[in-house]
Structure formats: structure tokens, C-alpha cells
Design a protein around this nucleic acid. Sequence first.
DNA 1: TTGTAAGCGTTATCAA
DNA 2: TTGATAACGCTTACAA
Lengths: 325, 325
Amino acid sequence: MVGIKDVAKRAGVSVSTVSNVLNNKKNVGEKTRELVLKICEEMNYCPNPAGKSLKTGKSNTILFNFSDFDRSFYLKIINGISDYLKDNDFDLIICTDKSCEKYMNSTLTCGSIILDKKMQDETLIRLARENYPIVVLDRIVKNPYIKSVVVNNYEPMYELIQGCIDRGYRRFGFVGGPEETADNKERFRAFKDALEANNLEFQQKSYFAGNYREKSGYTAAKILMLSRELPDCLVCANDNMAIGAMKAFRDNGIRVPEDIAITGFDNCDLAEAMGLTTVSIPNYERGYIAARYLIENIRGQRNVETFKISAKIIWRDTVSEKDSY
Amino acid sequence: MVGIKDVAKRAGVSVSTVSNVLNNKKNVGEKTRELVLKICEEMNYCPNPAGKSLKTGKSNTILFNFSDFDRSFYLKIINGISDYLKDNDFDLIICTDKSCEKYMNSTLTCGSIILDKKMQDETLIRLARENYPIVVLDRIVKNPYIKSVVVNNYEPMYELIQGCIDRGYRRFGFVGGPEETADNKERFRAFKDALEANNLEFQQKSYFAGNYREKSGYTAAKILMLSRELPDCLVCANDNMAIGAMKAFRDNGIRVPEDIAITGFDNCDLAEAMGLTTVSIPNYERGYIAARYLIENIRGQRNVETFKISAKIIWRDTVSEKDSY
DNA sequence: TTGTAAGCGTTATCAA
DNA sequence: TTGATAACGCTTACAA
């Protein structure tokens, strides 16, 4: 590995001159600058970020942390983050692990975007600081250095359920995600509120606890089929589980939506192909906006008010007019 | 940010003692060890990797580099990599950008896995070195420090085409991916060879250059529909483009497979839902194996022979018996 | 315009 | 069993 010393030696100048050239300081002669740049090019010199960040206490690298590989729309979020950062000359590193803490707690990165339920609020609050803002995508955290950018789950879920009721559905089942996640809580709350507002009863036995993965939706549907009577409409806290449920019903000769309607949440690629009624979340924009707020906070334009991204319902084939049968 | 000095001061010991404790050296008394550990815990001390890697010239962090956010199976590859590394006490950072070079060229990482056509062979050859092995997933590079783990495209593509011919298809079209990628070249070569072996002619006008994205498949199909006669069977170099083509045909009242058969490559989630005949690549395993070889090379067990992952054909509804119409 | 030297947070060497 | 100190690659006063 070639270091700044090697470049300096070959160019016949001091290391500080090389450093000055590379950092665009103006206290260096034109000829020297050109020479140094030429040598850097020749030797493929690439400054070691370890030395740099250690000395300056700064960096222009953002960390993104996630860990759920089953949620394919995460790539879209990353895409949005990546595009914004590229346009603003920040670098991105992604960490899928607890190990990200060491990058957050050092000067190697200057801010983080978090989408990982394994990352605890308490840890975030400890790590966020002046000059190290954090944006969280999967919960709301109140802290002077933490901004939350979250999906507005309540309104579209409420509206979705109201829409189902308007179409004639009365007996509802719910397949939930991990109970501790803010998204799942909010989606379930909207679901219950909508039923209540319509004087419809919801029994706890119609709640199935899943984990946002397809398999758990499949299992929930299997269990459901063992019970005496199927609900009219099975509301799932995300698309993966809704798709799992659809497959279970299909495998057992139960027709959707004739025998049971199904709704999801996310509008993943598969939802479109399978005709699933769901709620569409603009994920690319979600990443882009998160990155934008993070950079603004890094630049001192402090703003940690919670930002809500609006989602919209997409009616497809898995819900229809109940009366029509 | 709390550093080793702060811990040392609070514990009333020297920094070297703290370092010795944290690195499990045995030259430290039991009582001191416990005290230091307790203080580290209390202060949430987390060693700065910059300082560490600068001093030791080592690290146990692997870098993964990719950049195509449209290929959702990349998450599965990452999942495989992540799982293997976790089991072997290595950390993972992911980079989507040219900036990864600075992490590869420093001591912050100790090896890389590459899946990014923007990364040039020449760069890889420069960066790979003794103690810095690289595994490439999207091409074959011959170098003492670079191992290629690639999908065996040729055999399944050849077999797929032969299968289509056996089912009665004769006039083929091909939608290719980026021309410079090894995958695309190999898939097209197998396609042509299979036709030739059956004395079937392939005209260059039936080749459509895409970019592995859905939209380019859609466009290719639109162009195709302008021509006098449609092929029997449209072979696409990946699923995304095949799905794009299916949508274009569907939007224009052309039936699949009655009017035209379609094949893809990848077996992405959507392929199953849409009934696309395709070639399934075990992506989780691909990542897992890549990580395994990388770690083995890092541990000195040098092995840079190209590893081929076998893929298998999945016949679904988009191809059927041509005779049956 | 250029060079010297200190220091960022670590670990390794060596002396106590 | 401990601690003082040099060194890793870099930037930044400050001196020349």
C-alpha cells in the first residue's frame, strides 16, 4: 500500500506539500501541484481514511444500518440514500450488524441512517451527539440529535379498512408483524379504530402474530383454516405475509377474493404481479429524504421534527365488492 | 466519544493495561482485568477502528461492493455473506460506490467481495495483494490473489434452448443484458451454440440490447411487435427483462405462451408469481460460498481456482408444447 | 512557497 | 504485573 510518504519521496517534496495539494490548499506552487498530482496518479495513491479521520476528527461518510434481508424494498431505500449522497459528495457504507456501533462511535462516519429493529433506542440516544446526527426510519425517537422519518401508517390503513367495510366486508382477521415494531402497532391500531368506528367487533382470537415474513403469513392462514369459520377479509400488516396467506389459501382450494379477501402493506414487486390490494410506500423517496435530512443536520441546519411520509392505497383483485357473490 | 485514555484515567491504570485487557493478553492481574472491563461497560467504551487498524495494519472487516439496486436477489447474496462472516467473527461493510477503493486500499478492511460491473479488472488486480484477497462474483479474473465465484451460465442456458427446441420452437429472439458483462456473453454464446447445433439460423436483427432492467425488456418487446413477424420464443438474459417483455405483450393483447414463449434467467421472486420459465441461481449460497473462500484465502489457505455455481432450469407456464396450438 | 513537528486513538516493545 | 513511549498515515500550525 502506497502512503503519503511514498508519494512525497518520489516527488521530492515533503508530506505536508502532498497533503496540501490533495486538499486543495492554495499555499502551493503551480508546478509542484502538477508534479504531485501526476505522481499520485502514477502510484495510484489513495489516502487512508483511518489516518485522515483520526487526525481531523471528521469524515464525509454516512452509515446505513439494516438487517432484514427478506424485505426486498430495502434496496430501493438504499438506492434513494445512495443517489442523494452521491450528489452531495458524501460516501455511504452499509452495515448489517451490531458491529456498526464501532463505526458510529468513531470519526470514520459523520452520521447514520437506521432501519433495524435490533438497534435499541437507548443505544441510538447514546450514540447521537452534536456533530453526529442520526435519522431513524422505523420508529419515532425524541432526541435533539435524532430525526425520525416514518411512514404514515395510520391514515391509509384506516382508510383501507373503511374501504373494505364499504365494500361489504364485516368479519375481519389480522396478521400482525413483530409486536414491538412501531409500524405494526400503528397499523393494528388503525385497523381496530376503523372497526370500532363502524361498530364492528374484533375478537383477539382473530389476531395472528407473524414476523413480516412470507412463511408466517402462510402459517397464519393454515391455522385460520382450522377454525370453524373463515373471516370475510384477512388484513395483513405487510405484503410478504399477505402473499404467504394467499399461497396457503390457493394450496387449499380457497378462493381469493370470493371466499376471503386479503390486503397487504408495502406494495412490493410481487404485490403487483399477484394482484394484491395493498398500501404503496414510496421507498426510493424515503431513502432520499432520509439522506437529505441527515446531511442538513450535519451541516448545522438542525431539524429533528418527525417527518411523515404519506402512503397510498392501491386497490387490486384480492378485494372486491362483497355483494357480488 | 470516549477513548482508551478516558477509560484508563477512570480506572486509574495506564492505557496499555486497558489495551491489554481488551485484547485478552494474559499479562494483567485478575482484579485489574475485572475493574477495567467494568469501567468499559459503564462508559460504553468502543475502540476506534481507525486507531486500531492504523497501528496493527490488520482488521477483520470484509468489504462487499455492489451497485445495481434493481437486482433484488442481491439481498440474498448479502444475506449469505453476512451469515458466513458472522459465524466466523468477521465484520461486513457494504459499499455501493467508487469510494470503496479507499477502504480496499487501507488497512480498514482485509478482503473484498465484488459484484459491480463498474469495478474494472485492472483496478481489482492493482488492489488485490498478499494479505488482501478478493473474490469476484460477476466475472473471471486470473490473478494469484483473486478468486472468481461465478454462475455456470452455459450449460443451463444451452439446455433451456434445447428444451424449447424439443418443444417445437424454431424462431428465436434474444434480449441481451449489458454487452460487456461476462454473464450476458456466456448466456448468449450458449443460446447461439444451441441453435447452431440444431441447424437453426439466428439473425442479428433478432438480438435486442438491454441493460438487465425491466424497462429495457418492455422496450425490446415493443420494438419486436413492430416487426413483420414475431419469433416463436423470446429468450431474455435475465428475469427483469423477461418480465418487462411479458408486460409489453400483455398490454398489447399478445398471449404468452400461445403467441410467443418467453424465458428468463435468475428465478427472482416475481418469476415464480408470474409463471416465468427461467434458470434458478442459488443466491444465498453464492454469497455464503464467496465469503467462505475469501476467509480461507485470508487465513492463508490459498485457493484462487475459479468456482462455478450450478444453476437449474425451472419450467413454468411461459413455455409450453408448441404443437398444442 | 515549502518543510518540520505535533498529535489524533490505538497497540507493541521494552523497561520498571 | 504494570507503565512509558514510539509508531501507524494523515493534517495542520507554525517556522523557515
